[in-house]
């Protein structure tokens, strides 16, 4: 085991972690703010990349392509939102339906191919695994993704402080109270799902550029990685009781930590194909911790014990 191999791989792992951190911020909006588990993201994590790469291959500017990828994501979120609110389908099922439908749509977007490559030498990509080392700082992928995350968090911090943003937070916190205060909770949920999936598709656009291709399987298990980032961020940084912006930062850092751990696991000799199993196990453990704590580690103190305060 060569420690240099691991160290050399770390910047790349950080970059991937940061891009997935953006994706996880999208998941945070549905999972934590709206209190919905939205599985649409397994589809949109592919859609964004497909849209972005195909647009760039057709000669569009990278920012325009990313914007359209974002919009494609919001559209997918809209579909899930309508299925869930207006048609009364449970959120998880609504997400699965959209995700399944997106599989066909993603293939259509990619010209019926499972994979569409983009050449980093011929196209002006924003991020790439080739832009990690030996490029000027303004082109450096690590620098750019950190910058994008900073801007994204600033925008979301502002948005969730507005009247509309507050009504979305209230909807996730207490839908009955929200309706009693005149909030249309259906609209709140739809807006939240659209925003979340837009951000995920945007991250997908970045990720496809980073890898140099859009892939039909890019989104498989994305929700699990997103949740992993959210939960790791919460477990590690939750004790600091920071404000909303800090919570988003810890989600992004959760993505980085997740990828660093994976890198170490790979370095220890596990195969890349094992990663999904490891991801599932990690997330299952972190999701179970609060339950286990409550059930097995909070036994009442015996009479005469050290309970006197």
């Amino acid at each position: 085991m060569n420690i240099m191999l691991l160290i050399n791989a770390l910047p790349g792992a950080c970059a991937q972690g940061l891009i997935w951190g953006i994706m996880a911020i999208g998941v945070f909006i549905t999972y934590r703010i709206l209190d919905l588990a939205d599985l649409t993201v397994d589809g949109t994590m592919c859609t964004g990349g497909a849209v972005c790469i195909m647009m760039m291959l057709s000669g569009y500017n990278v920012w325009v392509s990313l914007l359209v990828a974002f919009l494609a994501g919001t559209l997918a979120g809209l579909v899930t939102g309508v299925l869930h609110t207006l048609l009364g389908i449970p959120a998880i099922l609504a997400g699965i339906l959209t995700q399944l439908g997106l599989y066909s749509i993603n293939l259509r977007i990619m010209d019926d191919k499972a994979n569409q490559a983009i050449n980093v030498d011929k196209y002006d990509l924003l991020v790439s695994l080739r832009y990690i080392k030996g490029v000027p700082i303004y082109k450096n992928t690590l620098f750019l993704t950190v910058l994008i995350i900073a801007v994204l968090i600033a925008v979301l911090y502002w948005f969730f402080g507005t009247e509309l943003g507050c009504s979305i937070r209230a909807t996730g916190s207490n839908p009955n109270m929200s309706r009693a205060q005149g909030i249309n909770t259906d609209v709140s949920k739809i807006i939240g799902l659209m925003l979340s999936n837009g951000i995920v598709a945007f991250a997908s656009g970045l990720y496809a550029q980073y890898q140099g291709f859009a892939d039909i399987n890019a989104g498989r298990g994305a929700i699990v990685i997103g949740l992993a980032a959210v939960i790791i961020g919460q477990v590690i940084f939750g004790r600091f009781h920071g404000n909303f912006a800090f919570k988003l930062v810890s989600v992004a850092l959760g993505g980085v930590i997740y990828y660093l751990v994976l890198q170490v696991v790979l370095w220890l000799g596990l195969k890349a194909n094992d990663l999904k199993l490891i991801s599932a196990v990690i997330v299952a453990i972190f999701l179970a911790i609060p339950h286990l704590k409550e059930k097995y580690f909070s036994k009442p103190v015996k009479k005469g014990g050290a309970s006197r305060a």
Binding site: F159, T162, E163, C166
Partner: peptide, 18 residues
């Protein structure tokens, strides 16, 4: 924040500060 939500009951909620 709860009070601010209630103060906007019956009004349009847009992108003004909450």
């Amino acid at each position: 924040e709860n009070l601010a939500l209630a103060a906007r009951r019956g009004k349009r909620r847009n992108l003004r500060v909450g």
